[in-house]
Simulated assay, not measured.
Amino acid sequence: MTRMARRGAAVTVLAACATLALAGCGTTSEQTGGSAEAGKPEKCGADGKYTIGMSQANRGEPYRVRMDDDVQKAGSKVPQFKVELADAQKDSARQAEQVQTFITQKVNLIIVSPNEAAPLTDIVKKAYNARIPVIVLDRKTTTEDYNQWIGADNIKIGEAAGKYFAEKLLPQGGEILEIRGLSSSTPAGERGDGFRKGAGDKIKIVAQADAEWERDIAVTKATELLRSHPNIKHVYAHNDPMAEGVYKAAEQLGRKDIVVTGIDGLPIDAGGIKAVEAGRLAATFVYPTAGKEAIETAKKILVDCQSVAKQQLLQTELVSKENAQQVYTRLNAG
């Protein structure tokens, strides 16, 4: 089955479950979120052993590889935990199947970073209503049927990027290009909306393209945009790999005048902070992976038998040439 066929099948099945409550899709109580026991683990306590299943949207992005690594590293420090990782490979149907497998296996807690919001909503709700605590990272689902969402405020990050363009890069105003993330994922919409708010009327986005968060796709998309708009020199990319893709496209076109900003700010050699330090990017904005925080929340739920807040908001910061080395050192020290 192709990726598109698989995705279409999953959406059809999930829709049927929601409207017809077909056998095998879960009971009505599992699907509607009405149980007061939803999200409460069947067992908890310091003397237990717990399996955590994590489904990652994809491992094609360095950010998500780092997120998995952070989850594994933090999980290895909790003696009661065993962490199992699954890669959805940008396929929402595959990811829904992975979560269903975790439900069938009766893992003690699920961590999921959704590929897309809507296709993952019902299966996350099903796990939550089956008394399997669920922690959602970075991207959201369309309901709050989970124990906790952990991430930074993508609207505020986008707004900060917009202000950076309006105040630092183009204080007199100007035209730019935008390379967006996967259009059906929540961060893409929020980072775009926030940017427009922060930039105000001074900055005009004349063209945009969806590069699905990936560097190689961004090279192709940016090449097309830069050729179509040869007079535009500034580009806003929704993450650092795509920003690096823009830089590569500009380099291949002989466009040394292109100025690019991104988001993620990973403290790794191939990450955005080093790209800023090297001069390939004008700036980036740190977007924490939430891997360590996810395990801390899992420990509160399973080991400490505590309830947790519905949302945990992480802080971000601007990384420019002036502070890149300092931020890199500080984040790796943590």
Results as ranks from 00 to 15, higher is better:
Q100V: 01
Q95A: 06
A290L: 10
A152Y: 04
A15P: 00
Q31S: 12
M1T: 11
I203K: 13
V319C: 05
A5R: 11
R255Y: 05
L177N: 10
Y287L: 13
M242Y: 03
N147Y: 07
D193E: 15
E84R: 15
G265R: 07
E178A: 13
L137Q: 12
A209H: 05
S113F: 01
D210M: 07
I295K: 03
E224T: 15
A5P: 00
V260I: 11
E167Y: 02
G48I: 04
A207S: 15
Q105M: 07
P241W: 04
E159D: 12
K300V: 01
K248F: 03
G271R: 11
M67W: 02
Y287P: 00
P62H: 01
M67V: 01
I155N: 14
D91Y: 11
L85N: 13
T297P: 00
A333F: 01
Q311F: 09
H229Y: 15
A86L: 12
Q100T: 13
K49C: 00
I232R: 04
I103P: 06
A74H: 04
Y328K: 10
V308S: 03
Q325R: 13
D68S: 14
Q315C: 00
R66V: 11
V308E: 06
V235P: 05
T104S: 15
I205L: 06
G162K: 09
I232E: 03
H229A: 06
G162M: 12
I132R: 07
